[in-house]
Simulated assay, not measured.
Amino acid sequence: MQLKKQQISLGLVNPKNPVNVASILRAAGCYGVASVFYTGQRYRFAKDFNADTKAFHKVIPTVGVDDLKDVVPTGASVVAIELVEGATPLPEFEHPENAFYILGPEDGSINSETLAWCDHVVYVPTYSCMNLAATANVLLYDRLAKSDYAKGNALIRQSRDTNNRTKI
């Protein structure tokens, strides 16, 4: 069983934690993300110490760039995910078919210059801010939950860990 090819890319603004980026790569692999771009030097210096246990970094292009605006995929709507006043709550957001999601750094925010060229700004309603990897997972799951997604035992068999053969 093959999952539908997604038109999703992620842009990470100066991520600092290689474990978070590795977790994002795992989520990207699970939810069909085509590519991941990142800015800044912090992850470049630390990326060799990653925790991408499924090795999705070998399958999903993970590219360091100077400016995310320069790599917006053709035809993609740019969606910033940030806790800023005036943003749309994620449960009310309708995901574009072709999306470039931009996520801010763990220890800061997406700057207003970047937010100005985004098509949408969305936030995840929580009682506190989540870390980068948690935000990416919630975002990608929300996109899946609102879509016409694949279901059934064939998908379960394809997706589960090799040590899991449980049936109900």
Score class of each variant (00 low, 15 high):
Tyr123Leu: 15
Ala27Ile: 07
Val72Trp: 11
Asp148Lys: 09
Gly75Leu: 03
Ala134His: 00
Asn20Gln: 01
Ser112Gly: 00
Asp48Leu: 04
Val122Tyr: 05
Val72Tyr: 02
Thr135Ser: 00
Gly108Gln: 04
Arg157Met: 04
Asp70Ile: 00
Arg157Ile: 14
Ile110Pro: 07
Ala51Lys: 10
Tyr101Arg: 01
Val71Tyr: 08
Gly75Trp: 04
Ala133Leu: 00
Ala134Ser: 04
Gln2Pro: 07
Ser147Pro: 12
Ala133His: 02
Asp52Arg: 00
Ala116Arg: 06
Leu144Asp: 09
Glu85Met: 00
Leu140Asp: 12
Ser35Lys: 11
Ile110Tyr: 02
Phe56Lys: 07
Tyr149Lys: 07
Ala34Gln: 09
Gly108Trp: 06
Val121Met: 07
Val19Trp: 09
Phe45Trp: 15
Val121Gly: 00
Val59Met: 03
Leu155Thr: 06
Tyr141Thr: 08
Leu132Asn: 06
Tyr101Gln: 07
Cys129Pro: 04
Asp119Trp: 11
Phe37Cys: 00
Ile60Trp: 10
Gln7Thr: 06
Pro96Gln: 12
Tyr127Val: 13
Gly104Met: 05
Ala27Trp: 04
Glu106Pro: 01
Ile24Ser: 12
Ala46His: 02
Thr126Arg: 09
Gly108Glu: 03
Lys146Ile: 05
Pro96Ile: 06
His57Cys: 09
Pro73Ile: 14
Pro61Thr: 05
Asn153Val: 03
Gly64Gln: 10
Ala133Lys: 06
Ser109Asn: 01
Ser35Gly: 11
Ala154Lys: 12
Ala133Ile: 05
Pro125Gly: 14
Leu90Tyr: 15
Gln41Trp: 08
Asp142Thr: 03
Lys146Leu: 13
Thr74Trp: 06
Lys4Cys: 07
Val65Cys: 12
Ala46Ser: 06
Lys5Pro: 11
Tyr38Gly: 01
Val138Ile: 10
Ala28Gln: 04
Ser159His: 08
Lys69Asn: 04
Asp119Thr: 05
Lys54Leu: 14
Arg157Gly: 07
Ile156Asp: 15
Leu144Cys: 12
Ser159Cys: 15
Ser9Ile: 00
Tyr38Ala: 04
Ala154Gln: 15
Asp66Cys: 02
Ala145Gly: 11
Gly11Val: 00
Arg143Lys: 13
Gly104Tyr: 06
Val36Asn: 07
Leu155Val: 00
